[in-house]
Amino acid sequence: MSSLKTRIAKLELETPLLTASGTFGFGDEYASLMNLEGLGGLVVKTITLLPRSGNPPPRLVETPAGMLNAIGLQNPGLQHFLEKELPLLQNLHIPLILSIAGETEEEYAALAEALEGCTGIAALELNLSCPNVKKGGILFGTDIVLLGSLVEKVRAHWTGTLIAKLTPNVTDVVHLAHAAARGGADVIAAINTIRGMVIDITKRRPLLGNRFGGLSGPAVRPVAVKIVYDLYEAIKLPIIGMGGIMNTNDALQFIMAGASAVAVGTGNFVEPRTIPQITAGLKEYMEKSGIKDLHELVGAAHES
């Protein structure tokens, strides 16, 4: 029997398949379409200290083999999450990873402090890179000093697994990963979306309400695989790989590049059962290839 079990820092996962933040809501929308307990872990949409109303529409547009989105972190805020969403999520018997964002270091720290000790939160993921927010996130994810300092501040309030989700919108993601590691992150997640724009030629204006957005889907996959490959060579931290994963072969590319776990985002929109399908596909691949432990595949694309 092949085992899909994997480990990202202190976090034990039954399978390496996670949802990408912002693509699966708080899980309830997909509950009638699949067994959520088959997920390796649920990464819920980013929450902020206070509610956010989000960006003006249009918020998304399809692009060749991908999509651009500029949602603007619409979310009901920490208090609503703790009162209304968390109790439901606690009933699921899968690790819950909470994505957080703020406009200042203090906001991130306050979120970490409020969430420390809450039952049922397996890890925090720092959204450092959402390119849709005019202030905040973008700065932290693209500046080594700001990023290191932010991770350190959150680390001081959060004893559980801490994931730094990196933006690809920098010259070299590896430098940022080092900064996150020095600040005390346990896991690196890569990649967040790549900034892009579509012009509406009839209106002669950018199509999205926010003017630009984040590109995701199969179009970004080779970029993401390369970044995961580079991170695996450069840092010791476990990696959650993501970017355009639609099927088992895509997930295998990320695992072989060095990801200990992978996340599906845009793929969920196309086929809500992408994660269960990949879970079954990975198992079949491993059994056919005589691989007993997923870790034999992690980083397999690197020459030893």
């Binding site: 918020r59 547009v61 989105n69 929109f269």
Partner: peptide, 26 residues
């Protein structure tokens, strides 16, 4: 109508501005 991704309420992509009880929200 609005551009749509998930169709089931998860992604918040198909927002329209609504006013209700004196406040506006998507």
């Amino acid at each position: 109508e609005e551009n749509m991704a998930c169709g089931v309420g998860a992604c918040q992509g198909c927002a329209v501005l609504i006013k209700k009880d004196g406040e506006t929200l998507y």
